[in-house]
Design a protein around this nucleic acid. Structure first.
Length: 475
RNA sequence: GUCCCCGUCGUCUAGGGGUCCAGGACACCGGGUUUUCAUCUCGGCAGCAGGGGUUCGAAUCCCCUCGGGGAUGCCA
């Protein structure tokens, strides 16, 4: 068994394509199949090497491994369609000679008109050049540049058993008429060369997005005309945005690269993508890789499209983060602390791990760490809007005043036992009315780690600074 | 327009004729824990697109309508 993922390098790795890559990977791992990466860079205008590099990089980050394809150096590949023109033109010659394809000399307007007419009369569109002989074609060509089209047979039914959609039936008269396989500039077109490449690369199972479902009959016709094997197909339902339109940037993050930067874990993304449109019998959702593979079954994938739920991905990511031992998760957080310009290097490892152990639970993604960490890294913290509003309350001002007195008679050893109980005793506040102003005073914000844990780590000197700052600002 | 695919809580889904007055998860709301927020934990809200059939019985089968998505000459 051999599967493939065939991205076109016209941008970053999109979350929808990543899902396709993940499903292929899961299937490959499960069945021990070969995984081939093929770069579909036939669109010369839009393809760039930069996107190829970044797509491959993102795939590696996700944990996807392939046996054949770019940079894998196993004696195969690189499998770039742009480097296979010779192969395609051989097949084009065959098609031309066998009468399965023809050059079309119609103008754009001509075709448009003919199509419209066919449509109005509810008849299938037949290209007016389709019956030209080879000689006639040569004559008309006369050194000019014209597209080559595939001659679609009339009234042939094309049936295939999709692994997800089950039996799908098309009629050849109904797939839009003769279609272009080679552009007038000589470049072969996607729908044409996938058939060739999949056959030549001995792909047994084509697993791809549903947007290719109605391309499939064309590809089957080409394979038949060329006497090439036809693979099994599995068409994954599309991933949609919250408005049920195809997932795009305006819905949120669609680039795998950005998820990486924001501090999502690859295993969480893989888990989420694998689970989209699919579920386990037990209902378990956080599935470590081995379990994901052993349980994954392509025939269980839903037929209907799924809306991408950013919140659930986040939740799942948080679940994975909780599983890491302190030392490891600390290492993972460090780049994000440095990015937030905290002075990590001059801090002892012990204190750093201490901080992480206090704040890790309030993080669902790695970049969440910046906010709670500020409590410990900054000397003082300017209150945010909520904190500021609270500290302007009269009872908060009382607390600040009292704190500023109490802090003077405390020291590093006594501050934990003395500060909050001392304020409580003097003000007789308790619960929220006691803790929230204190929290705002020493952290600048209303949410964060347990104060009893935070206070010893912030340390006496900084606490004093913070209290004095608030006294000046609010009292 | 035509063809193809799809339609269970807000979202991801289980369920494929009786065990479903439809189960789980995210989100949301409420209780408990935390002298505070969060975490954690317990509980709640909420759905079979609509209409016809078939059947003793339909979320499950059939038809129609509606809705969404995709493809339809030089994107993949």
């Amino acid at each position: 068994m051999r599967v493939r993922f065939a991205p076109s390098p016209t941008g970053y790795l999109h979350i929808g394509n990543a899902r396709t890559a993940v499903v292929n990977h899961l299937i490959a791992k499960k069945s021990g199949a070969d995984y081939i990466i093929r770069i579909e860079d036939t669109d010369k205008e839009r393809s760039t090497v930069e996107s190829e590099i970044s797509i491959l990089d993102d795939l590696r980050w996700l944990g996807i491994e392939w046996n054949e394809g770019p940079d894998q150096d196993k004696g195969h590949g690189p499998y770039r369609q742009s480097e296979r023109d010779d192969i395609y033109s051989e097949y084009t010659k065959k098609l031309l000679q066998s009468g399965h394809a023809f050059k079309c000399f119609c103008t754009n307007e001509q075709v448009e008109e003919d199509k419209k007419e066919a449509q109005d009369q509810n008849k299938p569109f037949l290209d007016r050049c389709r019956n030209l002989t080879l000689d006639e074609q040569d004559e008309l060509c006369a050194g000019g540049q014209f597209p080559i089209k595939f001659k679609v047979p009339e009234g042939e039914s094309i049936v295939f058993d999709d692994k997800i959609k089950e039996r799908v039936t098309f009629n050849s008269s109904n797939i839009g008429g003769d279609f272009i396989i080679v552009r007038s500039d000589g470049g072969a077109v996607y729908n044409y060369i996938v058939s060739i490449d999949d056959a030549l690369m001995k792909i047994t199972h084509v697993i791809r997005g549903e947007d290719h479902l109605s391309n499939t009959p064309k590809q089957i016709l080409i394979a038949k005309a060329l006497n090439l094997p036809i693979p099994e197909y599995a068409h994954l339902p599309l991933i949609l945005g919250s408005d049920k339109k195809k997932l795009s940037k305006r819905h949120g993050i669609t680039s795998v690269d950005i998820y990486r930067q924001e501090g999502y874990l690859p295993e969480a993304l893989m888990n989420y993508l694998g689970l989209l449109g699919w579920s386990t019998e037990s209902g378990e959702e956080i599935l470590e890789f081995d379990k994901l593979i052993s349980l994954f079954e392509i025939s269980n994938i839903s037929k209907s499209p799924a809306i991408f739920d950013f919140q659930k991905l986040k939740w799942m990511n948080g679940g994975y983060m909780k599983k890491y031992p302190l030392a490891e998760i600390t290492d993972m957080f460090i780049p994000y602390l440095e990015k937030a310009e905290f002075d990590v290097k001059s801090m002892s490892r012990e204190k750093l791990e201490n901080i992480i152990s206090i704040i890790r639970n309030s993080c669902e993604i790695l970049s969440d760490v910046a906010k709670p960490a500020a409590i410990f890294f900054n000397d003082i913290n300017i209150p945010d809007d909520e904190g500021d509003a609270l500290l302007n309350e009269d009872y908060s001002k009382d607390i600040i005043k009292i704190a500023s007195e109490i802090i003077l008679i405390l020291n590093e050893e006594t501050v934990l036992a003395g500060l909050i109980p001392g304020i409580k005793e003097k003000t007789e506040h308790k619960g929220k009315k006691l803790f929230h102003p204190i929290r705002a005073m020493i952290t600048g914000t209303l949410t964060g780690p347990e104060l009893d844990l935070a206070i010893p780590v912030i340390g006496y000197d900084n606490l004093k600074k913070r209290i004095e700052y608030c006294k000046e600002k609010y009292c």
